[in-house]
């Protein structure tokens, strides 16, 4: 996608100016292999999203996509300049806790919380696909991420509205 170079997005960077993907990459942390973004209805709403907190606190920059067309554009852009392009609202972004110690801790927590994850799964039934223990949340008790295969929350909403309009 040659036009990708021309894309401009708002970002969690303090500048308040739009950035290009190239500029974003130049600011990426050393251990970061993914261009991360978060879609939503408006800039103000996305900035308050509970899942941004940990990324900002850990010094990761996230692109903020408030235009409905943004997500449709970037979902066809799986990679840019050899970097993956992913939404942090999906469950396959994993920048936290990739070292052995953190993985071991996560495994222990998962075992410890098995009665509760089982309970949630049984109680919520078809409403959820999966219940797991998070390492991405700061203040919220729970959050719903979407599968990397399939619709995002934003796309589900747009789809519902279209179905109603027809």
């Amino acid at each position: 996608m040659r036009l990708a170079k021309l894309l401009r997005f708002y970002t969690t960077d303090e500048s308040e100016e739009m950035t290009s993907l190239d500029d974003y990459i130049s600011r990426m942390k050393d251990d970061q292999d993914t261009i991360m973004y978060l879609p939503g209805d408006s800039l103000a709403q996305i900035q308050k999203s509970p899942i941004l907190k940990k990324y900002i606190a850990s010094g990761y920059e996230v692109l903020l996509m408030a235009d409905p067309i943004d997500e449709f554009t970037v979902q066809h852009l799986a990679e840019y300049e050899k970097k993956k392009v992913k939404s942090i609202a999906k469950d396959d972004v994993n920048v936290f806790g990739n070292d052995d110690q953190a993985k071991e801790k996560q495994k222990k927590l998962k075992e410890m919380y098995k009665p509760l994850t089982d309970f949630f799964k049984q109680h919520l039934g078809k409403r959820v696909e999966k219940v797991s223990i998070s390492n991405k949340l700061v203040d919220e008790p729970l959050f719903i991420f979407t599968s990397q295969y399939g619709y995002s929350a934003q796309m589900e909403k747009i789809n519902k509205h279209q179905a109603m309009a027809n």
């Binding site: 919380y113 696909e129 919220e140």
Partner: peptide
């Protein structure tokens, strides 16, 4: 078509900790 929802629980959250004990008890 609906999105596939993966619920993640915050293991450090006081309510989630309490819920674990409650479910176990």
């Amino acid at each position: 078509m609906l999105a596939k929802k993966n619920l993640e629980l915050n293991p450090s959250h006081p309510t989630i900790k309490t819920l674990l004990e409650l479910v176990k008890a």
